[in-house]
Simulated assay, not measured.
Amino acid sequence: MQFYSELPIAHLQEYAHHKSEEEGPHFPAAVSTNTNSSQGLQCYSCEGESNCLEPHVCREHQNRCRTTVMSTLTPQGLSTYYNKDCDISGKANNSISYLSNNEVVFLAEEHCERELCNEHAPNVLDVLLARGRPKKLMHCYSCGSADGSCFNSSLAQMRCSRPGEQCVDITSFSEPEEFSQDEQHIKGCGQLTHCQEPLGFHNGNSFYLIKCCDSSLCNKETQDYKASPLPLNGVMCYSCEGNFSQGCAPDDITQTRCRGPMNQCLEASGIDGVSGQSLVIKGCASSSWCDSPYTSIYKNLGGLHLRCCTEDLCNSQIVDGTTLKPSPRSQASCNPTAQPVLLLATLLLWVAFCLCSESS
């Protein structure tokens, strides 16, 4: 199923021409950028089917601007949904494309830290029209949770849209499952930061596993990690998720047996990107996850203090915010979340956003 790669360029050019005539010229809203510093950062904040430009003063804990774009391509044309807002630091720019319900979904998220810097948005149409026919574009297996295709024995295939993309395989779910969007599977093409090795985290509440590979059709695996969990690796870690009155209070902390590549104990504290509350997370993580921004991306935490260690039950030092309990024998190291890598056109705040939008 590769219909999007076979759409004639002339068809896309005609669509782009008509779209431009319908929308007419678009000019930025008149806003003053000489904002009083006491007000905080200003970002464009809105959502809808046009590249909106409505300024908004960010909350104290929000120090970046974000643009998330979801474009859906069918033989009839391209539709795009924009979501702009203030956001927290620590997230990387990522992009992914995949097949769902006989459509191709392109999803990209970009972050910036200047006043009103999220004016522009990634344009999938420009990418498709400019790419020509490079000879070495990847082919990847593709599926999405929305149509339940990720566990089919016969997966669809798609042709990637730009050089440098990898085949990706993303699984996430929560326990207990509260909403249908809590279980997510995506296979397709993408540019994801820090994805040279499997990126994984799990505890008693959540499971995340992101895999990338560099050869065509290398993402064929269809394992159901709920029905057939990854093998135990012999490591035991503390597990919790929440604040200090609920979720990560002493009575709420449990022990988790680690699985697969998640062979380090992780603990992190940060500020929730929406509520501004202090939150804590403990569980098992792969070394690549410890060195990446994905705790911020998936858990939407800013001002992150993250620590990974390799001994059983060693993730016990964060006891009050970023306060560390003395542990002179610990081999743990403090690993601040890696700075975002600028990849043109999240995904993974993006994953939740995308699937929720599809199901609405």
Rank of each mutant, 00 (worst) to 15 (best):
S174C: 03
K84C: 11
T68N: 07
F3V: 13
I88Q: 01
C150G: 02
L73Q: 10
E21H: 05
Q223G: 01
A108R: 12
C140V: 11
V105Q: 13
G190R: 04
A130Q: 12
G303F: 07
C143S: 08
C265N: 03
F179A: 15
H139I: 08
P340T: 09
L137G: 00
P176V: 02
P250S: 00
F201M: 07
H26P: 09
L116I: 11
Y208M: 00
D320M: 11
D320A: 14
L230C: 01
D291A: 14
P261D: 13
K84Y: 04
E177Y: 01
A92K: 05
S215Y: 14
S149R: 03
F207G: 00
S95E: 09
P293M: 08
T295D: 04
L343Q: 04
P75G: 05
E109T: 12
E311Y: 02
H305A: 04
Q255M: 10
L344P: 15
H17E: 08
C46Y: 04
M158Q: 12
Y98D: 07
F201I: 14
K84F: 08
F151V: 01
I318H: 09
S327Q: 03
Q191D: 13
K135E: 09
M138S: 07
K325C: 07
L347A: 06
N63L: 13
P336I: 05
G188R: 05
V235S: 00
G48Q: 10
V319Q: 05
F244W: 12
L99V: 13
C212S: 14
Q39R: 05
H17G: 15
L107A: 11
P25G: 06
L125M: 13
A10M: 02
A108T: 11
K226D: 00
Q13N: 03
T322M: 05
N36F: 03
D214S: 08
C65E: 05
S287D: 09
S239E: 04
V127F: 06
C112G: 10
D182C: 03
Y44K: 06
F353H: 13
L137F: 02
Q339T: 11
N51G: 02
G247E: 13
S174L: 02
S286E: 05
S174T: 10
F106I: 02
L342R: 13
N93C: 12
P293Q: 03
N335G: 06
E165Q: 15
N315Y: 10
E197V: 08
V341E: 12
A16Y: 05
H56E: 12
I297V: 14
I318R: 06
A345F: 15
P293F: 06
L304T: 06
A29Y: 15
C212Y: 05
I318F: 13
P328Y: 04
M236H: 03
S100A: 11
S153R: 09
I96N: 01
M70R: 15
G40I: 06
A338E: 03
L73Y: 09
S142F: 10
T68W: 11
I318C: 06
R66G: 02
E221C: 02
C112N: 10
E267M: 02
S292Q: 03
Q317C: 08
